[in-house]
Amino acid sequence: MSFFVEFVRSPLTVGAVAPSGPALAAEVTAPVPRTGSPVVVELGPGTGSFTAAIQRRLAGDGRHIALEINPRFAERLAGLHPKVDVVTADAADLGTVLAERGLEQADVVVSGLPWAAFAEGQERDVLSAVAAALPPDGVFTTFAYVHTRWAPPARRLLGSLRGRFDEVIISRTIWGNLPPALVYHCRRPNT
């Protein structure tokens, strides 16, 4: 199964023609602590570009839960990363998934979701779930492609992030990704 085939099958849930590259994965996962036992939630892991980077940062510690709506991606991801709790679920169901595991919050939420394909209500529901799942010192990271930054869905996402978080820091351009991307590091959720 190729990433491109899944994109053709369902472009609104896959959202890209190729997986994210290592440079983007490193920037998106930078807030994942290398020490302690953090709870890290990954939304829309796809084929696992960010998953592998999170696992390297956790080095066997903490808890890593991945919510993937595409059952083929979820099955493949579970096989490749047996230490990851892979759940076939919508990202908006984050609170339910955490509660089912006896967890109230996550320390870090990392997103690989295709925001440009989301309707406004879907975006609102996911960001509400993320903000509710984070403690005051929690971090949410997501990304956008540089070439779409000024398109209405990307501007809406940035506005939504700024409305949900006290601090939104935009990374430098990740030129090593295809296509080039920016990462949003969001802190101090406004719940």
Rank of each mutant, 00 (worst) to 15 (best):
F73H: 07
L43A: 10
I54N: 01
L77P: 08
T35N: 04
L77F: 11
R57N: 00
A89I: 05
R57K: 13
F50N: 02
A26F: 00
G79S: 11
T29P: 00
P19S: 10
G15A: 04
A99F: 04
P45N: 09
F73A: 01
G60C: 02
S37W: 06
R56G: 08
G15I: 02
V32G: 00
T29D: 00
L94D: 09
P22C: 03
A25F: 03
P19L: 07
P45G: 15
V14T: 15
A92M: 04
G46H: 12
T29N: 00
T96A: 15
R101T: 11
S20H: 05
L103Q: 03
G95C: 05
V97D: 07
A18M: 13
G36Y: 02
H64N: 05
H64Q: 09
R63K: 05
E27M: 12
T35D: 14
T29L: 00
A30L: 10
D85H: 12
S37K: 11
P71G: 08
A99Y: 03
A16N: 05
P19W: 12
G95Y: 05
V97Y: 06
V87L: 06
T96K: 14
A53S: 11
L77Y: 07
E42I: 02
A66K: 07
V39A: 11
V40L: 09
T35E: 15
Q55C: 13
L94F: 08
